[in-house]
C-alpha cells in the first residue's frame, strides 16, 4: 500500500515532467495555466492561504527574472529571435508548476510512509533525516529574509541587495548543515536506546 502510494507520487512527478516540461504540452500556455490553477487549489486545501502565498513568494523572484530577461532579449531581438517574450512567459508558468508539483508530491510522503518502505536501514535513515531537515529549514527562509532586510551591514558595499541575498543563502546552508547533524545525532541516539516492549 505504502509502496503503491510512493511509487504513484514519483510516477506523477515523472509524468508531469515528461509531458509538461520536456514533452508535447510544454508551450501550451492554456494547459499550463490549468495545471497551475489545479496546483494552487491543491496547495490552498493543504496549506491554506498563508502557506500557499509563502510557496509562491519563494519562486516569485525567479519568475520576475525570467520575464525581465525575456523583455530585454525580445527588445534587442537577441540572436535574431522575436519569440523571447513568449518563451519567457511559458517558462514563467512552467517553473512554478514544476516547483509546486514536486513540493506537493514529496510533502504527501509522511514519516510513517518512509518507515514502512522496504528499503535498507541506511537509506531509511537518510530519507527520514532529509525530510525532517527540509521540514524545519524551509520556514527559516522567511525569517532569514526578514532579518537581512533590516541589516545595515552592507550599506557601504557595492550592490548591498546582492550581499544580503548571499547572506540569506549562506545562513540557509549553515542551518541545513547544523539541523542535519542534530537530527542525525537524535535519530542515532533514539535508535541506540530503543527497547522492545516487555
Amino acid at each position: 500500500m505504502v509502496m503503491g502510494k510512493v511509487l504513484g507520487l514519483l510516477i506523477l512527478i515523472l509524468a508531469y515532467f515528461a509531458w509538461f516540461v520536456f514533452g508535447p504540452w510544454y508551450d501550451h500556455l492554456s494547459l499550463q495555466g490549468i495545471v497551475f490553477t489545479t496546483l494552487v487549489v491543491s496547495s490552498l486545501i493543504r496549506h491554506g492561504w498563508s502557506g500557499t502565498l509563502r510557496s509562491l513568494w519563494i519562486i516569485f523572484p525567479f519568475v520576475l527574472t525570467l520575464i525581465f530577461f525575456g523583455i530585454i532579449f525580445d527588445w534587442f531581438q537577441l540572436m535574431g529571435r522575436s519569440d523571447w517574450l513568449n518563451d519567457s512567459l511559458v517558462k514563467a508558468v512552467v517553473f512554478p508548476n514544476s516547483f509546486l508539483v514536486t513540493k506537493l508530491c514529496l510533502e504527501s510522503i509522511s514519516f510513517r510512509d518512509l518507515i514502512a518502505l522496504p528499503v535498507s536501514q541506511k537509506t531509511r535513515r537518510s530519507m527520514i533525516i532529509l525530510k525532517a531537515v527540509m521540514g524545519k529549514c524551509t520556514p527559516l527562509l522567511f525569517r532569514f529574509r526578514f532579518f537581512m532586510s533590516l541589516s545595515p551591514h552592507f550599506h557601504n558595499q557595492r550592490w548591498p541587495q546582492f550581499w544580503r541575498l548571499c547572506a540569506v543563502v549562506m545562513a540557509l546552508y549553515i542551518s541545513i548543515y547544523r539541523q542535519a547533524e542534530q537530527t542525525r545525532d537524535l535519530y542515532d541516539h533514539r535508535q541506540t536506546f530503543l527497547r522492545e516492549k516487555p
Binding site: L140, R143, F144, F147, M148, S151, H153, F154, W163, C166, A167, V168, M170, A171, I174, S175, R178
Partner: peptide, 18 residues
Amino acid sequence: AQDIEIQQTTMIATLALL
C-alpha cells in the same frame, strides 16, 4: 530578535561575508 538562535545564523553569514 527573541529567536536569536535562528538569527545567529544570519549574523554568522554577515560577519563571514564582511
